[in-house]
Design a binder for these strands. Structure first.
Lengths: 178, 178
DNA sequence: AACCTCATGTAACACGTTACATGATTAT
DNA sequence: ATAATCATGTAACGTGTTACATGAGGTT
């Protein structure tokens, strides 16, 4: 089961929304997909070169104002659709927080409380950010694109609320010594 | 920021619950931590050797019935506590499902529906498994260990319920053409 | 005899981060 | 001028999976 580099998929997806420099691709992925996807420069630039070699994107150096901009080619659009249709493989779980809490009796006193309080804080920050995004999104024109974006936002909201509820409940259920 | 190998932490944690062969360590991690942690043999055996070198675990070959069993040493217990107390770093998100749904308009017709239905199925299976674990756990002796295990189980339950609710809702909100 | 599970390991590869290096443009 | 941001890339390393190889012991 050879996993195709998913970085190319994310980069291609970003470029399907408009032409960008590599730097902007990274910014777009961080800002728009940031809650469920991450790419570093060390992945993006090689991916851009590979996609260019494959003819999926084209480099243009129009006004020579700064770096070169990339845009998706018709072949690239076909490739994007193919890759998106491929099955996704859930990444094996590696949750450091849960691992620590599972062996919670081995933690220093008070540490598990700290961990849970930090999670509550994180969930609240995420929910506030999601609320802002949703307010912003309500001003967008309706349509299929909007619906799909709302769907991914709803994912973040549901899971953040669940996380908050869990951490709050867990804090109360903590053994007395902690 | 050099990430210490977390595999050693999981292996040490598993061995803190009793002596095991490498094969059993893998089974224990899969069965007990499986919902939030994963290790492959390719990681476990090198980790066992490294931990043995470091004096954190000891190999014993008692009845020579089969492979050698490992048990944690006092130094290993100290090491486990140190490692558990270290801050955990959230793994950067890479959610292939969400990436595909975000670009849902590029998916073949019906594909997003399939994806969501598969998620509902997965969440329901997970919830059934959690219910069985919880029933099992209610017969355990109470105490701090029990409390911490209940806490990690509750995490799985909260998130699985949120996932189910999201996928169900998303299915209804899908654009008409899909 | 064939097969399954237990058991241990290695090698090749895929994936991804981090640190480093370098320089252009733009704002203060 | 100086600093911040934009921009591009490479090299080293860490981490982790998958496929392969090998063999013991027990079951059908």
């Amino acid at each position: 089961m050879s996993r195709r580099p998913q970085t190319e998929l994310a980069v291609l997806g970003a470029l399907s929304t408009g032409s960008m420099t590599g730097y902007e691709v990274r910014a777009a992925i961080t800002e728009i997909l940031g809650d469920f996807w991450h790419e570093s420069f060390g992945q993006i630039y090689p991916a851009l070169n590979a996609l260019e070699q494959a003819g999926a994107i084209a480099r243009s150096t129009p006004g020579r104002t700064s770096g070169s901009r990339f845009e998706i080619t018709p072949a690239g659009t076909v490739l994007l659709r193919e890759r998106l249709a491929e099955p996704h493989h859930a990444t094996p779980p590696r949750n450091g927080l849960l691992l620590r809490l599972f062996f919670g009796t081995q933690l220093p006193p008070g540490r598990s409380r700290e961990l849970l309080e930090a999670e509550i804080e994180r969930a609240e920050v995420a929910l506030a950010r999601f609320a802002a995004i949703r307010a912003d999104m309500d001003t967008e024109p309706p349509g299929a694109e909007h619906d799909y974006r709302a769907l991914t936002l709803a994912y973040g909201e549901h899971h953040a609320r669940a996380h908050l509820a869990w951490a709050t409940e867990a804090l109360r259920a903590l053994p007395d010594r902690d």
